[in-house]
Amino acid sequence: MKMARAPKRLPRTAAALAAGAALVLAVSGCTKLDTTAPSAVRKEGAAAKKADQGAFGTVDCRRAKCVALTFDAGPSENTPRLLKILKDEKVPATFFTLGKNHIEKYPELVKRMDAEGHEVASHTWSHKILTKIGPAEARRELERPNKAIERLIGKKPTLMRPPQGRTNDDITELSEELGLAQVLWTVTAKDYTTDDSALIRKRVIDQTKRDGIILLHDIYRGTVPAVPGVIAELKKRGYVFVTVSQLLAPGKAEPGKIYR
């Protein structure tokens, strides 16, 4: 089965960064990815630890109705506003940061993400589709942001989101070797197709369920203005925001595995 391509009508930059985001389910169906749900990780973790150890991170998602807010392809000029919103709302997020023109351009924002309690993860160095490049180049795409992030915050990322959600056995093996778990998503607003913040908000609200992993991009101008409404409505519906790692606790993401 051939993989669907990004819509030709999108601008080149948008297509290169995120045009395949909405296609992950179709891609997964074609390649039959073996993905693991957060609830399964928590169950495995609980079996390995005493059940009465209390909450993990800031909340125990075995009991609370948790959701993970994630942002791809930043940081960007929009990120300071986003970080202020998250700080004001006391909402942690997971940032899948891009190396070229992002980590290297906004290193202080990466430090700020970590300092303010967010999870800093990798979205590769230059957003090349890992399944379409050779093994040496794929290794560079994953190793470079790891090193850059470690230099900035003193620790290597343990999570990686493959561009367009495209992965295969070779990328899984490489991710395992590099200590990276692969994180996909269950909710996408397709914010690379619109600047309509109200529409972005509606798409997220309509799709979100317990244990949801929400995919947004802090590089698009319509996305950050949608975030306050997303947070307000989901809180109203009883959701608690956590990082991806908190969503899995007391289990932990294992290198090479794919989570959604």
Rank of each mutant, 00 (worst) to 15 (best):
S39K: 12
G57L: 01
K252F: 10
P162C: 05
A15D: 09
Y220P: 01
N78I: 02
T35M: 13
S39Y: 14
S28K: 10
P162H: 04
P228R: 03
L25V: 11
L184R: 00
G117E: 01
L33G: 11
R63F: 09
V27W: 15
V227P: 00
D169F: 15
S245I: 06
P163A: 03
D218M: 01
K105M: 09
A189V: 02
I153H: 04
K32E: 11
D195I: 12
T188F: 11
D191P: 03
K50H: 04
G222I: 01
P92Q: 04
N146P: 08
V227L: 05
T97E: 08
V67M: 06
T172S: 15
F71L: 07
K90C: 10
K190H: 10
L25K: 15
R161D: 02
K49H: 12
R237L: 07
K32D: 15
P7G: 14
D169S: 14
G29A: 11
E143W: 08
V224H: 00
Y106W: 13
V240M: 10
K147Q: 13
S126H: 02
H217V: 00
P7A: 15
E176G: 09
F71T: 02
A46F: 05
V27D: 15
A48W: 09
Q246E: 07
V244W: 03
Y106K: 08
A4L: 06
L180E: 06
I133P: 01
A47N: 05
R81W: 10
R63E: 14
G134V: 00
V204H: 10
R221Q: 06
L10K: 00
K128E: 07
K209F: 11
T70I: 04
A64M: 02
P107N: 08
T13R: 14
Y239K: 03
K8T: 07
R42H: 06
A37N: 12
K128F: 07
A37V: 12
F71H: 05
K87Q: 09
V240F: 12
A115H: 11
A136N: 09
Q182R: 01
A16V: 06
M160H: 10
I103V: 08
V120M: 02
L234W: 04
P80D: 01
I214Y: 09
R260I: 13
K90L: 08
A19H: 04
H102N: 15
E254A: 09
M1D: 10
T208V: 13
V91R: 03
P225M: 00
P7T: 13
E77L: 00
D72Y: 02
M113V: 05
R9N: 14
W185L: 03
G256M: 06
